[in-house]
Simulated assay, not measured.
Amino acid sequence: MISTVENPSTALVPVGPEQRPVVERLAQLYRHDMSEFLGHLPTADGTYEFGRLPLFFDEPGREALLIQYGSVPAGFVLTRPMAEGATSISAFFVVRALRRRGVGREAALQLLHSRPGAWAIAFQPANAGAARFWRGVATDAVGADWREESRPVPASMAANAPDDRWILLTTERLGPR
């Protein structure tokens, strides 16, 4: 059973000090999921290294958002500004029990339309589920007005990783949904 709420809503909540541990725990699940595509292995204590995660809590311009499904933490989004002026979705995670139920799509569309402007979304091409998801979200957000390109993964992020695929689009604010 996923929730006792009849029709839970999906919301994005800025992460403050009280939610930071929730995102840090969910980030372990995210890193585990990504290990399939990037080869991350757990450290000696059984956890996954995510050295850049603190930047999203502490560095100006970066942001961590908790995805809430009713009262349940369903995942998180990490964003950062890029040199060319776009906002990058650096990480996006939804717990497995809520995948393919519209929660991630709703959270992604809320994010893209709540902050109009240029967006850049990276994913590994071997991650077919992410490729389908982000291409569908881009089309839902802006129709055919988006493009896709390959860019190298910085060596500091994952040595010898295949190029990322990037979806680039520009959104406008939507009215009430």
Rank of each mutant, 00 (worst) to 15 (best):
V94W: 01
V95S: 05
G46T: 10
G75L: 03
R165S: 12
A27G: 02
S114R: 14
A74C: 06
E63F: 00
G46L: 11
Q124L: 14
T79L: 11
A155L: 12
W166M: 11
E84N: 15
R62M: 13
L38S: 00
P81D: 11
G136T: 05
G117A: 03
T79Q: 12
H40D: 14
I67T: 08
V72R: 13
P176M: 09
P81F: 10
S156Q: 12
T47Q: 12
R99V: 00
A11H: 08
I2V: 13
F76T: 03
P116N: 08
S150K: 13
N127M: 06
P17W: 08
L112P: 05
S9I: 02
T47I: 02
R52K: 09
S71C: 00
G104L: 01
S150F: 12
R80F: 06
P8T: 06
I89C: 05
V13T: 14
M157Y: 10
N127S: 05
M157P: 01
Q110Y: 03
L29E: 13
A126F: 01
A122E: 10
Y48Q: 04
R31I: 02
E24N: 00
S71D: 14
P42Y: 07
S114I: 02
A108M: 07
L174K: 13
V23C: 04
D33H: 14
R147H: 13
V72T: 14
S88R: 13
D164Q: 11
V13N: 07
L65V: 01
E106T: 15
V103S: 03
L41I: 06
F76S: 05
D145V: 10
P162R: 12
M1G: 15
T43C: 05
S150W: 08
R62K: 15
N127I: 04
A108W: 03
L41D: 06
L174P: 03
V23Y: 01
R177H: 13
P60W: 09
L174A: 12
A118P: 09
R62T: 08
S88L: 12
R31Y: 00
G16V: 08
A108I: 01
G39D: 10
R151Q: 14
P14E: 14
R99S: 05
G75H: 06
F50D: 14
Y69C: 03
A74Y: 04
F57G: 09
Q28K: 01
G46P: 09
P125R: 11
G136C: 04
G85C: 07
A108G: 06
L12M: 06
F133C: 05
E149N: 10
F57I: 07
R115D: 06
A120G: 07
A144S: 15
V22M: 03
A159F: 11
P21Q: 00
L38I: 02
V13M: 12
I167C: 08
A44K: 13
R96L: 03
N127D: 13
T43Y: 05
T79V: 12
A97Y: 04
V95Y: 01
R132I: 04
R165H: 09
A126P: 04
A108T: 04
L98N: 01
G85D: 08
P14L: 13
S88F: 08
R100S: 15
L109R: 08
Q110F: 00
E149R: 15
P54F: 07
V142C: 11
D58A: 15
S114T: 07
P14N: 11
